[in-house]
């Protein structure tokens, strides 16, 4: 990229410039992402921090800020929805991330072993990720419908009485989880597949020659190599699962009651629908703190396993 812009430089200058660039490669390589972050995130995040200790209202078309200190914590203490929403969120995140991780890894290993039709599986397994969430939510709600949905129609043909799905408070969150697993297993599958495909198979052959069986090869050779990828994948997926929005919004809206209310949906209601910007900002920050606990846990797990070896 430098060569074209330096056409009329002398050889000498060019040489010096490229040496300079090469010596400082690490700095200019990191610069673009720092610029992106500075321009596009500092202002919104700063705004969010300020909001979390303020009240805002439009007065005669102008947004007016009032500093309220820690008042929003008081609101939080009296909020009857947050405990339910947090409980559902944690349950949702733990269940879907575990199920999807196991399925994703299993499918990645199986696909990597399939010689024929691997292209077919790799493509098909990606499809759920390609469909816009608004359509996923709508179509699944249609499929779940008690009166005309295809799921209960199929169960009926099999001689079974279908459950109420999203209308049953005990099943609403499960219904949402089913859709989530269908939708997001692809994500972990893809990352794990990239990891599995980068594995050095020469090592496994050497191990097999030494008499290791298939499970041992995976357990003692592949899994340790895959661990960094798995940790990053789990971390990213956990964050995404905390932010689950469209599919719950469309499938259940958080109901019936608060049986499928999750924190991201509630933040949307508070921050956006009710324009309680300050309290909403506080909830957003608190949720980020909770997610950080998961992230720290994954990093700790990574180091712990590392030390054990």
């Amino acid at each position: 990229m430098m060569a074209t812009s330096a056409v009329d430089m002398t050889r000498q200058q060019r040489w010096r410039l490229s040496t300079f660039l090469d010596a400082n490669f690490q700095y200019w390589a990191l610069a673009p992402i720092l610029i992106f972050l500075a321009v596009l995130t500092l202002y919104p995040v700063g705004q969010l921090l300020r909001m979390s200790v303020s009240d805002m209202a439009f007065v005669k078309g102008k947004l007016e800020w009032t500093y309220v200190g820690l008042d929003h914590f008081q609101t939080l203490r009296n909020d009857p929805v947050v405990p339910d929403a947090l409980k559902n969120t944690l349950l949702f995140v733990v269940v879907v991330v575990c199920v999807e991780a196991v399925l994703g890894l299993l499918l990645a290993i199986l696909v990597s072993r399939a010689r024929r039709f691997a292209w077919f599986y790799r493509s098909v397994y990606m499809i759920p990720l390609l469909i816009p969430p608004i359509a996923i939510g709508t179509i699944w709600r249609l499929m779940y419908d008690y009166n005309y949905g295809i799921i209960n129609q199929v169960l009926f043909e099999l001689g079974l009485t279908g459950p109420l799905w999203t209308a049953n408070p005990d099943l609403a969150l499960v219904s949402v989880m089913i859709v989530d697993v269908w939708h997001w297993t692809s994500f972990l599958f893809l990352i794990m597949l990239a990891g599995v495909e980068s594995l050095p198979y020469e090592l496994s052959e050497a191990a097999r020659v030494d008499g290791a069986n298939e499970v041992q090869v995976y357990r003692h050779i592949f899994f340790p190599l895959l661990r960094p990828t798995i940790i990053v994948a789990l971390m990213l997926r956990t964050i995404l699962a905390f932010k689950v929005f469209d599919q719950i919004f469309l499938l259940t809206g958080g109901g019936p009651g608060t049986s499928s209310e999750v924190i991201s949906l509630y933040i949307y209601k508070v921050y956006f629908v009710q324009t309680r910007l300050g309290y909403g900002a506080l909830l957003a920050l608190l949720t980020a703190v909770i997610m950080s606990v998961f992230v720290v846990f994954y990093q700790w797990l990574n180091n712990y396993v590392n030390r054990q070896r």
Binding site: D145, Y146, N147, Y148, L164, A167, P169, G255, P256
Partner: peptide
Amino acid sequence: PANYADMGQAENLALMASGR
């Protein structure tokens, strides 16, 4: 209907329009 706890406008409309 049995799923009375989860009837939105779209579902009510569909139930009427489908003659049920």
